[in-house]
């Protein structure tokens, strides 16, 4: 067997294992609409908390060590909630088509088109914000610009998972 075939087999094995992990019956209790909605709301709340925490050191409300500690805790909670959200949708938004069946691949397409709309709206809002700040001559404080950039970046990453969790048949 050639090295290229070895790599392909290895990648296929990794994908199968990832798909099996996301399909674990252990997460069955999260796979109905209500728990998925709750997880999605928790994820949005975490983003809001993150936005607040990012701004706090900039206005001198908390020392830098407290900021770093809060961010460390937040990242751990974020990873756990995101993992539960992905397991609740069996990872249809994350897995490639090779490990999905035709119905799941169809849902994946719908999820990505929904996520595209969410991210487009966010981009329009951000563009409008920048235009307004330029028009009124407001120098946006550095901490606020960083906060907006961090939260926007994370929203781009989690948008497909949030949309998948809010679809009734994912």
């Amino acid at each position: 067997m050639s090295q290229a075939q070895d790599t392909t087999h290895e990648q296929a094995g990794k994908l199968e294992r990832r798909a099996a992990r996301l399909d674990d019956p252990m997460f069955e209790k999260y796979r109905s609409p209500r728990p998925r909605r709750r997880l999605a709301v928790a994820m949005i709340a975490l983003l809001a908390v993150e936005a607040i925490i990012v701004v706090l050191p900039g206005i001198g409300a908390i020392p830098i060590w407290a900021f770093l500690a809060a961010m460390a805790v937040l990242i751990i909670v974020f990873v756990v909630v995101l993992g539960m959200l992905k397991a609740s949708t069996r990872g249809v938004e994350e897995l490639p088509e090779e490990v999905l069946d035709e119905r799941q691949a169809q849902i994946r397409g719908r999820v990505y088109s929904g996520a595209y709309r969410v991210v487009s709206v966010m981009a329009i809002v951000l563009a409008a914000f920048v235009l307004v700040t330029v028009a009124v001559g407001w120098a946006v404080p550095e901490f606020l610009a960083i906060g907006i950039a961090v939260v926007a970046y994370q929203l781009v990453i989690i948008a497909p998972t949030l949309v998948a969790a809010l679809q009734h048949d994912a």
Binding site: R90, L100, D101, E102, R103
Partner: peptide, 22 residues
């Protein structure tokens, strides 16, 4: 037939129309 077991449930409940191949 190489699909997820959940997909069979969707077919039984007429919530999904399969491809001709499936």
């Amino acid at each position: 037939v190489g699909v997820h077991y959940q997909t069979i449930g969707y077919l039984e409940r007429r919530e999904y129309s399969p491809s001709l191949v499936l």
